[in-house]
């Protein structure tokens, strides 16, 4: 498995609080611009490329900043407010920087019946995040609970960035974390 950039990829500008004064570097240049052009060809409207464009932003920058929303808005002939309205509707676009490893633990009923709460506790403890949604002091982890990941027969499914891991139990958590690069 794998692929895509980790949300914590720091090889580009525009992430973290230290860059407030740095000029915004557009996401859609060169090959990335070409990628968007190819995507636009799939749809009869520019607006339909909005979700794919936001995914590209998140892949490249780790999150979707207001500046990136404005860039996308301009490219697709939309307003920044419209783009923000869409971004905030969906749960998977990060509106703030997150840890290098973004951990999502399914806790909906079927997984809840199989011990998902203990898996969450184990992640919070072993990552040092302390509480849901917070990023660990070393910037390495953010842990959240997520609604049904659609793998209920393999409780508890956990997503770490693009990795989808089945049948996680609390006792497997320390080893899972050690295996991360």
């Amino acid at each position: 498995m794998g692929g895509g950039h980790a949300p914590g990829d720091t090889s580009h500008g525009d992430r973290g609080h230290a860059h407030h004064d740095a000029p915004y570097e557009p996401v859609f240049v060169g090959a990335v611009k070409d990628e968007l052009t190819e995507i636009l060809g799939r749809y009869p409207t520019k607006m339909a490329a909005l979700l794919p464009a936001l995914w590209i932003v998140q892949r490249e920058r780790g999150w979707v900043s207001d500046s990136a929303m404005a860039e996308v808005a301009q490219l697709l002939d939309l307003t920044p407010a419209y783009v923000k309205g869409v971004v905030t509707f969906y749960t998977m676009y990060h509106q703030h920087p997150v840890g290098k490893y973004f951990v999502q633990v399914c806790t909906t009923s079927p997984c809840g019946a199989c011990g998902a709460e203990k898996v969450v506790e184990a992640f919070l403890k072993h990552t040092g995040c302390g509480e849901l949604g917070a990023t660990s002091p070393d910037g390495r982890y953010t842990v959240i609970e997520v609604e049904c990941l659609g793998a209920c027969g393999f409780a508890t499914p956990v997503m770490i960035n693009e990795e989808f891991i089945e049948s996680v139990t609390a006792d497997k958590v320390p080893e899972l974390l050690t295996q991360l690069p």
Binding site: A48, W55, L76, L78, Y90, T91, M92
Partner: peptide
């Protein structure tokens, strides 16, 4: 077309709105 996290987009007309951006 990749969704972005929303159970409601499994409802057919919500899915169409989502696809339309």
């Amino acid at each position: 077309h990749k969704g972005a996290g929303a159970y409601i987009c499994g409802e057919e007309t919500a899915l169409m709105n989502s696809l339309e951006g």
